[in-house]
């Protein structure tokens, strides 16, 4: 039977709940598993098996040089076929370091298993690749939400130690720049994506939101361009919304955006690109140019 070493993570004093998808993946793969965590004794994962554990008060939360050594110690102990991280700010940062140290293959953001390899999305979610590792041990990062969460009982803790010299030092955390905008309770959200094309077109999005009695949201490129406030960003690094109606105007539907709106009720996408990945979560895709279509829709809604 293959063996997987699962790497859980802690952030800002807490165990990150996504860890439970790691054993879910191991089950889907049909492998045995053990876990490794640099974390806190009062925040242990519910996992049936060996947990190689180092205390974050001693080894830090984000401390990649040291965490790499600790994970490699657990690798020595377990001799796994797979070392598995979540594809998170912790995982995509640490996984290649561990892979490089082992000269091991890495497959990033795995969303499925099949056809002799691991399935991963590419080209902004439009295409998918099946990737086969060519090394005896492979490092994987998992797309959030792709595998079922699975929790067990108390893990069996084994202490981990490593040298503490580090070239990277975590100084502090800063809270999100919310700006006091809370979209989480909005019944209707109309969001603007890069496809709105020009800053002036934001006014059309605003007018549609008003006509529908909703709030304006945005995808990342729109707030980065300064067309809307950062507090209106929806997605994995912004707000999570679940309105009964979500209208995505010129939003391509990058995974990071979808993560913040997939709980919405009825989803309408307005996009010139019929293949845009937003169609994956939309009930309706209106293949039209926003600049021409929105004024017509708004005037019909108002009349």
């Amino acid at each position: 039977m293959k063996k997987a070493l699962l790497v859980a993570e802690c952030r800002q004093g807490r165990l990150v709940a996504d860890y439970a998808e790691l054993p879910g993946f191991a089950r889907a793969l049909g492998s045995e598993s053990s876990m490794v965590l640099v974390g806190y004794p009062e925040e242990l994962p519910r996992f049936d098996g060996r947990l190689h554990f180092a205390d974050a008060r001693e080894y830090g939360e984000y401390n990649p040089d040291v965490h790499k050594r600790l994970v490699l110690r657990a690798v020595e102990a377990e001799r796994p076929d797979y070392v598995v991280f979540m594809h998170s700010s912790y995982g995509w940062d640490l996984a290649p370091r561990v892979a490089a140290a082992m000269r091991a293959a890495q497959v990033s953001e795995v969303s499925g298993i099949g056809d002799g390899g691991f399935v991963t999305g590419c080209c902004n979610g439009k295409m998918r690749r099946t990737v086969r590792p060519l090394t005896p041990c492979a490092v994987l990062t998992l797309r959030q939400g792709a595998f079922h969460a699975e929790r067990g009982g108390e893990p069996r803790c084994l202490p981990l130690e490593a040298e503490k010299a580090a070239s990277v030092q975590l100084l502090r955390y800063e809270p999100p720049a919310g700006g006091g905008i809370d979209l989480s309770r909005a019944e209707v959200v109309v969001s603007a994506g890069r496809g709105v094309g020009r800053q002036e077109h934001i006014e059309l999005v605003r007018a549609l939101a008003e006509a529908l009695g909703g709030e304006v949201g945005a995808s990342r490129p729109v707030v980065d361009a300064g067309w809307l406030e950062h507090g209106r960003q929806i997605g994995s690094t912004g707000q999570t919304v679940a309105p009964s109606l979500y209208v995505a105007c010129g939003v391509s539907g990058a995974i990071q955006h979808v993560a913040g709106m997939k709980g919405s009720g009825f989803v309408i996408a307005i996009n010139t690109d019929r293949d845009a990945p937003i169609a994956e979560v939309a009930d309706l895709l209106v293949a039209a140019d926003l600049e021409q279509f929105l004024p017509v829709l708004i005037s019909k809604l108002r009349s």
Binding site: R11, S167, Q169
Partner: peptide, 11 residues
Amino acid sequence: LEGGAKAVVRL
């Protein structure tokens, strides 16, 4: 980081 928080690190 996730949720828009930031970690300030020195290299």
